[in-house]
């Protein structure tokens, strides 16, 4: 064996170890969720759907999950509407201070969630917005909308302005141009943005932890509490379900974004 191929194999082995490290925690929760035991053995002594049953028949888990889904769905709709309109203004508009707005848009991605959580709690509590669906949707939309703007404005930037000019030239109004030309062409990016926004809301933990009420709590808050106080394999079952659903959604979003890109090769 030449020294080059030894180096190559060492490199691949090292990479493989890192990849295992990356995947290990994700891969471990699935077998754990199927374990018949209360404690987590690996490999599991047998297979059982016990914890899935426990999840599906526990009203507190189901209530929290449904609440999270509801918040995420509303957040998705709000972020797509607000984010797409904002992207059009940012990319095609005559906007003073565009760069400042673009910079501020990134703030929700950079500012530590704990600061947002406490600040929002202080703002929402006196108004009675904590623990309400309105409160959750408001702050989740603020946190999710940058993803929509990033993805949709990138798609708008790829769209040659001459297409809209051609539409106008051929007699269509601004609105018709947007509906018949721009929207169909950026639809995949809008869909991807919608998926990002949905997941950003559904996965959001820190802010949800602080503004959840006793009545309405998100599934992330429920999970956080259970991990701290009552580590049961039900969490593994719930996590596995969420991971599978997340991956399925992301595959859809990515496939749709890829389809929208001009073929490069």
């Amino acid at each position: 064996m030449t020294s080059r191929s030894i180096g190559e194999w060492a490199f691949r082995a090292a990479c493989l170890l890192v990849l295992v490290f990356l995947m290990l925690p994700t891969l471990i929760i699935a077998p754990m969720s199927l374990s018949p035991d209360n404690y987590l053995h690996f490999p599991p002594p047998g297979l059982s759907l016990r914890w899935y049953r426990a999840f599906l028949f526990a009203p507190d888990w189901i209530d929290a999950t449904l609440f999270s889904l509801q918040v995420a769905a509303l957040t998705m709709v709000a972020s797509v509407l607000i984010g797409t309109a904002g992207s059009v203004a940012l990319v095609r508009g005559r906007l003073p201070g565009r760069q400042a707005i673009e910079a501020l848009l990134l703030a929700p991605l950079i500012i530590p969630p704990i600061i947002v959580a406490i600040a929002v709690y202080l703002q929402f509590a006196p108004l009675g917005l904590t623990g309400t669906i309105t409160g959750f949707v408001l702050i989740h939309t603020a946190l999710a909308v940058p993803y929509v703007v990033l993805v949709v404005s990138a798609a708008l930037q790829r769209l040659p302005p001459s297409l809209e000019l051609a539409g106008l030239n051929l007699g269509a109004s601004r609105l018709t141009c947007f509906r018949r030309i721009v929207l169909p062409l950026i639809a995949p990016a809008v869909l991807a943005g919608a998926v990002f926004a949905f997941l950003a809301s559904f996965d959001e933990t820190v802010v949800s932890f602080f503004i959840s009420g006793t009545e309405h709590k998100t599934v992330t808050r429920k999970m956080f509490e259970d991990i701290e106080f009552n580590l049961s394999p039900v969490i593994a079952a719930a996590s596995t379900l969420f991971v599978v659903a997340t991956i399925a959604l992301m595959v859809v979003a990515n496939a749709s974004r890829m389809a929208s890109k001009p073929q490069k090769n």
């Binding site: 509407l81 607000i82 984010g83 309109a85 904002g86 059009v88 203004a89 940012l90 095609r92 508009g93 005559r94 906007l95 707005i101 501020l104 848009l105 703030a107 929700p108 500012i111 600061i115 947002v116 600040a119 929002v120 202080l122 703002q123 408001l138 702050i139 939309t141 603020a142 909308v145 703007v149 302005p161 809209e164 000019l165 106008l168 601004r174």
Partner: peptide, 29 residues
């Protein structure tokens, strides 16, 4: 082919208002 200023402001207003009220104002306070 740029949008006019009023239309641009109308489109961006919800975004700016949302971020200002639910995000920057609380953090500032």
């Amino acid at each position: 082919g740029q949008l006019s200023l009023p239309l641009t402001l109308l489109l961006i207003a919800p975004l700016v208002a949302l971020l200002a009220w639910t995000f920057f104002l609380p953090i500032g306070r």
